[in-house]
Design a protein around this nucleic acid. Structure first.
Length: 436
RNA sequence: GUGGGUGUGGCGAAGUGGUUAACGCACCGGGUUGUGGCUCCGGCAUUCGUGGGUUCAAGCCCCAUCACCCACCCCA
């Protein structure tokens, strides 16, 4: 029989156990933080009716979505968690309590061309706050504090939550009477990546006047502390109503983020971030790790006026963000971010020698009730192999149980890091394990 | 969708026309059956993505094909 070559599809990440352990820890950290802020968990199907996911139609999503038929049903795999959320809220609105704070950790799928750090199946970790009819701008200020708390817990020291407001951008573009706002948005979003010269060139290609380009460039390159930037924006004295509304929102958000104890160095107004997704209408966020700038944004989101317009007549404004955990993990791994290379599956490996299994099982039960995590090596073989097992899995302690131990009702506890070993009573062994 | 690159054992990788295809990692066995991580010894590709061609001779040259990767676009 021919062997089928074991392989997985490109763009689908799978990990070895040691890495999976690290990945899951990150997932747990994120979940814990989301719950700390009162977000409720939901889970939605990975596959939805195509009409639901493609309600918006057109654009990138339609090209990238995995779509297929089963019988007569037209199915699609979710490409983010926001569209399913919209459907969920519209469907269950009468059973939900608003403002609805939900979190969701799950895999999403995008049939994209392959590239570094880009996956076809990846985890998104979303939080969103959905209002019924209206939603206070203070929610927009709370989101960065969730990001801050989460990223701190994930072990990041230096990161910047960039904050901007679509209304400020749009209002400014209106004031300049720019015809193709969407294109301009797209171009200035690239400032960081391609630099001011290239941005200016692209703007020229769009046919924008030199004077407008000049004002645009000064605008998006406004520098200073958050307060300084706000002051400069106000000093521009534009009378565009959208601009002024956006500016007011931005001021409130910045002010309250500070009151939520997010350090000044961790959030910053950045007028260049635009976010491609066209459903954002106000505040937008993008988080970058300062030590790993090449990773790009690892957590982004924003405010949208009406989440579920395709599925209900109710006006449901919301604000939320998503952490792209698969990309984040992959890139951190590449950058050797993780200090623990081999997290141990358990504290102890029990190794019965000879015919001592009964005694070993007894010891195992007692250790487990004392809260010691352990596993038992049942296979026959040389001791070298058994110790090698513990060694490869980085299990720090081995409990050796042979005829002598059974006879004396003791255990031999070996510390694999130091090589020391002692004959001890069970209670002493537990104490040693738990205090070392 | 557009442009570029690469394809050698489980993985990384040398090899740029000439006898048995380096090396490293991983894996397996052993250095006398109650002691690992270190070290030492031994084993592990009839074969170089696939198909065809050039040649006395091809992993190395040519053509085709497939696969994967990188970049643009867009995004997490």
């Amino acid at each position: 029989m021919d062997i089928v070559k074991p392989s997985i599809l490109p763009g689908f990440m799978e990990l070895l156990p040691a890495d999976q352990l690290l990945f899951n820890r990150m997932l747990d950290t994120i979940r814990l933080n989301y719950e700390k802020f009162g977000f409720l968990p939901i889970d939605t199907p990975i596959i939805e009716k195509s009409e639901i996911l493609l309600a918006k139609g057109g654009g990138e999503t339609e090209k990238q979505i995995y779509r297929f038929n089963k019988g007569d049903t037209d199915l699609s795999m979710r490409f983010d968690l926001t569209v399913p959320l919209a459907r969920y809220v519209a469907l269950h609105a009468s059973d939900l309590t608003f403002p609805f704070r939900r979190y969701q950790l799950g895999k999403v799928f995008r049939g994209e061309r392959n590239q570094k750090g880009r996956f076809r199946e990846f985890y998104q970790c979303d939080i969103d706050i959905i209002g019924n009819g209206q939603l206070s701008i203070l929610n927009d200020a709370e989101i960065p504090s969730v990001i801050y708390s989460t990223f701190k817990d994930l072990g990041f020291e230096s990161f910047t939550i960039r904050i901007n407001n679509r209304k400020v951008l749009n209002g400014f573009f209106s004031a300049l009477a720019l015809p193709n706002k969407a294109d301009v948005l797209r171009i200035i979003d690239k400032l960081d990546k391609i630099g001011p010269e290239a941005v200016i060139n692209e703007l020229r290609e769009l046919g924008i006047e030199e004077s407008a380009i000049l004002r645009l460039m000064t605008f998006i390159q406004l520098k200073g502390s958050n307060e300084e930037v706000l002051t400069k924006l106000k000093a521009m004295g534009l009378d565009d109503p959208e601009f002024n509304l956006g500016l007011e929102e931005l001021s409130k958000v910045i002010h309250h983020v500070g009151l939520l104890n997010v350090p000044e160095e961790n959030y910053q107004i950045d007028l260049t971030i635009a976010r491609g997704l066209d459903y954002y209408t106000g505040t937008i966020y993008e988080t970058i790790l300062n030590d790993y700038p090449s990773i790009g944004s690892v957590c982004s989101g924003g405010r949208y006026d009406n989440l579920a317009g395709y599925y209900t007549k109710q006006q449901l404004p919301g604000v939320g963000i998503s952490i792209g955990l698969t990309r984040l993990f992959y890139q951190l791994k590449e950058a050797n971010f993780f200090e623990i290379e081999n997290p141990a599956p358990s504290e102890v490996l029990i190794v019965p020698l000879g015919d001592t299994v009964d005694y070993a099982l007894n010891v195992a039960q007692k250790l487990r009730t004392q809260g010691v995590s352990l596993q038992i090596y049942y296979e026959d073989g040389k001791i070298a192999k058994k110790l090698g097992y513990a060694d490869k899995l980085s299990i720090p302690w081995v409990v050796l149980l042979g005829e002598n131990e059974v006879a004396e009702n003791m255990v031999t506890l070996k510390n694999l890091q130091t090589g020391e070993q002692k004959s001890l009573g069970l209670d002493e062994a537990v104490r040693l394990i738990q205090t070392t």
